[in-house]
Simulated assay, not measured.
Amino acid sequence: MPATPDEGRGIKSTRTTFAIVEALHDTRRARLTELADRVGIANSTAHEHLATLQELGYVVEEDGEFGLSLKFLDHGTQAKRRYRDLVEASTPALEGLVAETDETVNLVVEEHGQAVYVDRLTGERGVPTNSWVGKRKPLHAISAGKAILAHLPEDRLEAIVAGRELPPATDRTITAREQLQRELEEIRERGVSFNDRESHDRIRAVGTPIVLDGHVHGAVSVAGPAKRLTGEYFRTEIPDLLLGAVNEIELKLTYR
């Protein structure tokens, strides 16, 4: 759900424009009146913003419906280049994990207090989930996110979780800050994190942070159907594979 245009600080018209962009992201295609209703603005205001976005090439219209243009793909590709070294160093290890597990393997970083998927490979047995490259999720609800949280500096961790709700994705998601703190301590001790149907009722995942010189660069996770990721395979075999893969990534980043 996009933010209402008058929330927070900053320029109201800019906030309105991006509320429309986010609404188009969520709906994929929508008519002007639908967008105005979702954002909470007048039809005339929505028309002015859409006209400007079209003029600048960020929105396309077809049969009275509006959608985001491929200009955002260009910007997204440029943004991902910030993580070029990380992606390049990680790719062979991610491919190795896919070969070993035949599951879905993710590379995740933290940005603006959220988990962002920057790479994703899927084996033949890998199942579709509600994640993709560019997708943002709450850090506390996924294994890679919790692995990152556990290794952030205390002030950064505090800035992310203090005064915020921890929204549930399922009835197993951690929503209490004290419980999250205890789990983060356990993650630091064992080096891996677990997502036991916390982001999706039918998905389990294991995550491991990528840490160099005390700085967490991101995390890698292996995800699959909860009925397949069970017992020793979930609790021991996948963690061992992940730890080896992340060690490889850390060495490559060190000696690039």
Rank of each mutant, 00 (worst) to 15 (best):
I148N: 05
E178T: 15
G145N: 07
A144C: 13
R9K: 01
G134Q: 08
L229R: 14
L157H: 10
F234L: 06
G10H: 10
L97A: 12
D74N: 05
L68K: 05
E61L: 06
D6E: 08
I20T: 06
V127Y: 11
I203D: 01
T254N: 03
R156Y: 03
R81M: 10
A245D: 04
P209F: 03
D171T: 14
V246L: 05
E110W: 13
T230S: 06
V211F: 15
E111H: 13
A42R: 15
L97N: 09
V211C: 10
L149T: 00
L86Y: 05
E178F: 12
R38K: 11
I210M: 13
A115C: 01
A46C: 07
Q179Y: 00
D119E: 03
T230F: 09
R177C: 02
A36F: 08
R188Q: 13
A30T: 02
D171G: 12
G145E: 02
A150P: 15
E88K: 09
K227D: 09
N247L: 01
L229S: 14
P167R: 02
A51V: 07
T16C: 08
T52D: 12
S13F: 11
G214F: 08
R235G: 07
A3G: 02
V21P: 10
L251S: 05
L157G: 12
L243Q: 04
A226F: 00
R9L: 02
V87D: 00
A219H: 05
D26N: 12
Y255L: 00
S199F: 10
T173F: 02
R84N: 06
T129C: 05
A150T: 14
I142T: 10
L184T: 08
G40A: 09
D6A: 09
R182A: 13
E48R: 15
K12P: 01
V21F: 07
T52Y: 01
N43Q: 13
H47W: 13
D213C: 08
E185S: 14
V118M: 09
N43V: 10
D171E: 14
V116T: 03
T101S: 14
L180E: 11
P128F: 03
V105A: 09
L97P: 12
R190S: 14
D37G: 07
A51I: 02
L251W: 03
T33C: 04
V161C: 11
D201Y: 08
V222P: 11
A89I: 00
Q181K: 05
L241Q: 00
R172S: 10
V87N: 01
I249R: 00
E7W: 12
L251E: 12
A219I: 14
